[in-house]
């Protein structure tokens, strides 16, 4: 089996608050959420984005959405207007995190996005 990525078990979105960014990662299933809670820690995310020098990463949970939400402090090199980077607002950070390769997970099939043309038809 090919290597799976975080995007196989979760979707997400990122945005800015001044010089901080947030990345929401939302599991497709309850099993996927359990995996995120155990394995996608603040430390893992801080290490993954170490080249962007976040001063601190805080993790919150929203079980009702199967979601973990990360705040990456001081990660935008100044934020909108001041930052010299092309992505001053952290718009691309969620996609970058979702490209994280997953280790081998026993019950990964219970974490994949349920099949169906659109979510409401499943």
């Amino acid at each position: 089996m090919d290597t799976l990525h975080l995007s196989d078990i979760a979707h997400g979105r990122s945005g800015d608050k001044g010089n901080h960014a947030n990345i929401a990662v939302l599991a497709y299933t309850a099993a996927g959420f359990d995996w995120l809670r155990q394995h996608l820690t603040a430390e893992v995310v801080q290490h993954y984005f170490q080249s962007l020098n976040p001063s601190r990463v805080i993790r919150y949970e929203a079980a009702n959405l199967f979601a973990v939400n990360f705040v990456l402090q001081d990660v935008l090199a100044g934020g909108a207007s001041r930052s010299l980077r092309v992505d001053t607002q952290g718009k691309t950070l969620a996609l970058a995190l979702l490209r994280m390769p997953l280790p081998l997970i026993d019950n990964v099939s219970s974490m994949l996005r349920p099949k169906g043309r659109t979510p409401h038809e499943r």
């Binding site: 979105r13 939302l26 919150y60 959405l65 979601a67 939400n69």
Partner: peptide
């Protein structure tokens, strides 16, 4: 669910 849940957490700190 997906479009709404993604947007609910957009630019949010402590949900």
């Amino acid at each position: 669910r997906e479009t709404v849940a993604e947007q609910l957490l957009y630019e949010v700190g402590d949900p």
